[in-house]
Design a protein around this nucleic acid. Structure first.
Length: 540
RNA sequence: GCGCCUGUAGCUCAACUGGAUAGAGUAUCAGACUACGAAUCUGAGGGUUAGGGGUUCGAGUCCCUUCAGGCGCGCCA
């Protein structure tokens, strides 16, 4: 059982003697920063003193007198009424054996029996992914990993907008490039795509189909759209694959629009609509929105919002307990709009959570880089990953909370040096591996009974926090907490290494305990990095 | 104008969702390898948490207000 849980249950039990009925969520167990404050602390006495009409220290005194648990070495009351717990040596070292036994599975929470759908990236298949997508991919995938680790059932989903205006432009642009490939002058409209990447696609078409599509008719127009979508989506999928992001499902707007779904949904929503100047508005302001939103234009076309509503209804109908959309921060106006639409269908406002990811700026040599030297356009996802490497990009892009603007330091990320946090963590892992290799003839002692140094105790406590860290990072959808955890652990490992002689063939008892600790560290660093999609090399 | 977000060390960010002396990294300075990887470690300086008021045992965190910045407010997606 987790240390926190043991303490909570003991506190709840003792509180009954005061006539206080508590549940686990009422009790906050803190990890003491200062070793003088014990291993864990709680503020229950302060929290509940008023309700009981007693002095906080009195309450603390009663609780500390009545908490009995074999794993608690000592209890102290401090300050205004904090209760500090000191655990037994045996309980603290117990984590080593647990980590080694559970291995890759250490940190995994018990199954929650809940299905969660996380939609992210969902870039329009009209061109290359940019850095905003990179961050959304890194954050979204890590959130999924966290939910899975915490015991949820997760579906990673990508919504393909393969209809609408941009797709029309993709088709006409590709057609223009195709004509260009036959020596005709290039004719592109203002809203068409001027990127040079379509040239290669046009060449492919020419090679495969010859001049078959030079005639402008409905068939060729449809062909260019289809070919463009398929090719662009294939590129995106390849980029995401290479970035270690795999989607379980691709949903297509064109499928949503099939089979009269939109019409029947429109019919269902009718009580919540009105017509003004020929356009149909949805009364989202009856729910959470600050104004109503058009869903059908006066020319009869649907706005983007209409199929989006159907898509979200579709997701809910697939039996998910919660939907999560990971979006760029400029979409915040979208949140209450979609929640309102879900509420019209009887879903709760909480059935959808939107995680907003702030923009990314790249800095090189102290200056902001906007354009790629190679193409003259904005730096693409692919270019950044090629230049910097997957591990560094994935790590840096989740290192800060998603709501914070990210300034990506290009020099630091490519530097294989002490200042680079990715290498700092990976180096800690490699160090553990090399220690275990050097002493592979010495048996480990999973009970780790000989551990007693301060640097060892610090690691033990930190290792014990891993499962609850995952739980917290998952529910707050905050992968940056994993990165922070890893940095701390890596630091503790390096510190331990510097202050303790680990392999000492004249003292096998201590050595075998320390090696077991090293093994546990190695496992947890690796498990942590895996949550972020970052590799844990054995050698560097 | 209205709404949402943000403001913490020179810089980039934390602070367990209201807890104990606000912490890391980086930068700067000073130290540590003839023992397991120096991609490492040890130490120092650096703060009126944008300003002001309030709530309480206790506020960076909650409420009000002022200031500064970002983003939204389309029959675009």
């Amino acid at each position: 059982m987790e240390n926190e849980k043991i303490l909570k249950l003991a506190i709840i039990e003792a509180a009954k003697g005061l006539g206080l009925e508590l549940v686990e969520n009422d009790v906050v167990i803190e990890h003491s920063k200062d070793p003088a404050h014990g291993d864990y602390a709680t503020n229950v006495a302060l929290k509940n003193a008023k309700r009981l009409g007693k002095n906080p220290r009195e309450v603390a005194q009663y609780l500390s007198d009545n908490i009995k648990n074999e794993h608690i070495e000592k209890i102290e009351i401090a300050g205004p009424g904090f209760i500090n717990f000191f655990l037994t040596q045996e309980k603290l070292t117990g984590i080593v054996e647990r980590v080694i036994n559970e291995g890759d599975a250490f940190g995994k929470g018990s199954p929650k029996g809940k299905k969660i759908n996380v939609e992210f990236v969902s870039a329009n298949p009209t061109g290359d992914l940019h850095l905003g997508h990179t961050r959304i991919a890194a954050v979204g995938d890590s959130i999924c990993n966290l939910y899975e680790a915490a015991g949820y059932d997760v579906c990673r989903e990508y919504y393909v907008n393969d209809c609408g205006n941009q797709i029309e432009h993709l088709g006409t642009s590709l057609r223009a490039r195709y004509h260009e490939a036959f020596g005709e002058p290039l004719v592109l409209g203002e809203d068409d795509y001027h990127g040079r990447d379509l040239i290669a696609l046009a060449e492919q078409i020419k090679e495969k189909y010859g001049d078959k599509y030079l005639v402008d008719n409905e068939e060729s127009a449809a062909f260019f759209k289809r070919f463009g979508i398929d090719a662009e989506l294939a590129k995106i999928r390849a980029d995401m694959d290479a970035f270690r992001v795999r989607f379980d499902k691709f949903s297509y707007e064109s499928d949503i629009r099939k089979g009269g779904t939109i019409e029947s949904t429109l019919e269902f929503l009718k009580p919540h609509t009105y017509v003004q100047e020929g356009a149909t508005y949805l009364k989202t302001s009856d729910f959470l929105d600050d104004k109503d939103r058009p869903i059908v234009k006066s020319n009869g076309q649907y706005t983007y919002f209409m199929p989006d509503i159907c898509y979200h209804y579709d997701k809910m109908s697939r039996g998910f307990d919660e939907l999560i959309d990971v979006l760029g921060a400029d979409h915040h106006g979208y949140i209450n709009r979609m929640k309102s639409a879900l509420m019209m269908k009887g879903y709760s406002a909480d059935s959808l959570a939107v995680e907003l990811v702030q923009i990314v700026r790249v800095f090189k040599d102290g200056e902001e880089v906007r354009m790629s030297k190679r193409t003259g356009k904005s730096i693409t996802h692919r270019e950044l990953v090629e230049d910097v490497g997957i591990d560094a990009v994935r790590y840096f892009f989740v290192e800060r909370s998603a709501s914070a603007h990210l300034d990506f330091n290009f020099n630091l990320a490519t530097e294989q040096s002490s200042q680079n946090p990715v290498y700092y963590a990976q180096y800690a892992h490699a160090r553990c591996c090399s220690l275990l290799n050097l002493a592979d003839d010495i048996a480990l002692d999973p009970k780790a009974t000989a551990l007693k140094e301060e640097s060892e105790m610090q690691i033990l406590k930190h290792l014990a926090e891993f499962p609850s860290m995952i739980e917290g990072a998952a529910t707050s959808r905050a992968p940056y907490k994993v990165a922070a955890y890893i940095q701390k652990l890596a630091g503790l490992i390096h510190e331990f290494y510097a202050s303790c002689r680990i392999i000492d063939r004249n003292n096998i008892e201590v050595t075998s305990s320390r090696l077991a600790l090293v093994k546990a560290c190695k496992i947890v660093i690796k498990n942590g990095l895996r949550l972020l999609g970052v590799s844990a090399p054995e050698k560097m």
